[in-house]
Amino acid sequence: MGEGYSSQLTVEEQRYVFRLAFRMWSEVSPLEFVEDTWSPLEEIDIKLGFGTGRHLGCNQKFDGTGQEFAHAWFLGDIHFDDDEHFTAPNAGNGISLLKVAVHEIGHVLGLPHIYRPGSIMQPSYLPQESGFEMDWTDRKAIQHLYGGCKGRFNTVFDWIRKEKTPHGKVLIRFNTYFMRDGWYWLYENRNNRTRYGDPVPLQAGWHGLPNDGVDAHVHVWSRRKDTVYFFKGTQFWRYDNENDRVFREDSDGRQYPRSISEFFPGVPSPVDTAFYDRRDSLIYFFKNTLVYAFSVDANSLARGFPKNIRDVFPPLESGDHPDGNIDAAYFSYTHNAVFLLKDTRFWQVVGSRDRWRRPYLPRNGLLPHKEVDERWFDICDVHPTALKLTR
């Protein structure tokens, strides 16, 4: 509300905090929030304002310092008591406006108080560092009301990477990466959720890749090779993991990007997706309803390929098959399995361990599909205006 800015923080600080607070709910739900400072107030769903005592035409009076910091109504207004000493993130001692705002937005969205340590919806304010994260209980509570996040991806893959902490310490992390258009999510396998603050622009974490995303990722990992490729359109890039950027020229003097058809003879371009199978040292490229198995050792297509996708990956349940135009395929080290993703679904490929237990299963048979959000949680879009923030 125009008349409801706080007297304690700058306008920019307040708007930053509120964008960040709404973003935290966007990261764990399919809800999209858009800031609107120009429409008539009666057209706005959630109105924010600060006041003291009798304030903003509200029938509830604030009590001065202490006790009540703010109040909110389901799908309505949020009022903050300007007698409190609110602070912006990393701005010293006081009441964290971010934490209070996230709590009140939860009420606006329909959440009651949750009596669980760590929940942002617990009734009592507990001093906490500015970098607090949304508790698992809060995530499940909001998804119970609005559902989980769904969507399709350009490519998915596992990778072990070096990451620097804010304090300069280098950590070795094994994570899964989900990419869509020009954005990516880092999926923390140890926590079974996306990293807080994602998605982020592709260029922020993968230097030199096309801004609008990639079609496929292939990690050729054998006794003789450890090479990473990204594919886009008719070209591919080799990635330098040590220096965390694409190669412009490798040690053999080859310039990048290069033509797919030149380096992978017999493989069409562009491809839908691809993955490297260590079991047989083949790269499987997918294009429409066909699969092209490329031998890394022979530098040519494997005998008999291309083949129809149903012949290479037969369904275990009749009729339950993606039937081509795969969005993403990848080998998961976490699950020791290959997955094919299309739209909001995935199919797990029967592995050697499954066949050892059940020898009658066909090689590369597809188990019945499941929804992506049943296996990988909270891969949520965030409105672009909020994505400009950093956390």
Score class of each variant (00 low, 15 high):
Ile172Gln: 12
Met134Phe: 14
Leu202His: 01
Gly151Phe: 08
Asp135Phe: 13
Tyr125Thr: 01
Trp136Val: 07
Gly168Asn: 03
Asn175Ala: 12
Ser130Thr: 00
Leu186His: 05
Val170Pro: 01
Thr137Tyr: 09
His144Thr: 03
Lys164Ile: 08
Lys162Ala: 13
Glu133Trp: 04
Arg161His: 08
Lys162Thr: 02
Thr176Ile: 00
Glu129Cys: 11
Lys162Leu: 11
Gln122Pro: 07
Lys150Val: 05
Leu145Tyr: 14
Asn191Gly: 13
Tyr125Asp: 09
Ala141Met: 08
Gly168Thr: 00
Phe178Gln: 11
Lys140Asn: 15
Leu186Asn: 09
Thr176Lys: 02
Pro199Cys: 06
Ser130Tyr: 08
His207Arg: 06
His144Asn: 10
Val200Arg: 09
Arg180Asn: 13
Asn154Phe: 09
Thr137Glu: 11
Met134Thr: 01
Asp181Val: 02
Gly151Glu: 10
Lys150Thr: 01
Arg139Cys: 15
Thr137Phe: 10
Thr137His: 04
Lys150Tyr: 14
Phe174Pro: 06
Gln122Ala: 10
Gln122Met: 11
Arg152Phe: 15
Pro123Met: 03
His167Ala: 15
Tyr184Cys: 04
Glu163Ile: 00
Val200Pro: 06
Lys140Pro: 10
Thr137Asn: 06
Asn175Val: 02
Leu202Arg: 01
Asn191Cys: 14
Ile160Asp: 12
Val170Lys: 03
Ser130Asn: 11
Pro166Tyr: 04
Arg180Thr: 04
Lys169Trp: 01
Asp198Ile: 02
Asn175Gly: 07
Thr155Ala: 10
Asp198Phe: 07
Gln203Pro: 01
Asp158Met: 01
Trp159Leu: 14
Arg139Pro: 13
Gly168Arg: 04
Trp206Arg: 12
Trp206Glu: 00
Thr194Asn: 10
Trp183Ser: 07
Trp206Thr: 00
Gly168Phe: 03
Gly147Lys: 04
Ile160Val: 08
Ile172Gly: 12
Leu171Gly: 06
Gly151Thr: 04
Trp136Leu: 13
Asp198Gln: 05
Asn154Leu: 04
Arg195Leu: 11
Lys140Ile: 11
Glu129Gly: 13
Thr155Cys: 13
Asn191Thr: 07
Thr176Ala: 02
Tyr125Glu: 09
Gly168Asp: 00
His144Val: 02
Trp136Glu: 12
Cys149Asn: 02
Asp138His: 11
Arg139Phe: 14
Asn191Ser: 15
Thr194Ala: 15
Arg195Thr: 03
Gly182Asp: 11
Gln122Gly: 10
Asn189Lys: 10
Asn189Met: 10
Thr155Leu: 02
Gly205Ala: 01
Asn154His: 09
Tyr196Thr: 12
Pro127Glu: 14
Arg161Asp: 10
Asn192Arg: 13
Tyr184Trp: 05
Gly148Ile: 00
Cys149Ser: 03
Pro123Ser: 00
Thr194Tyr: 06
Asn154Gly: 14
Thr194Ile: 03
Phe178Trp: 15
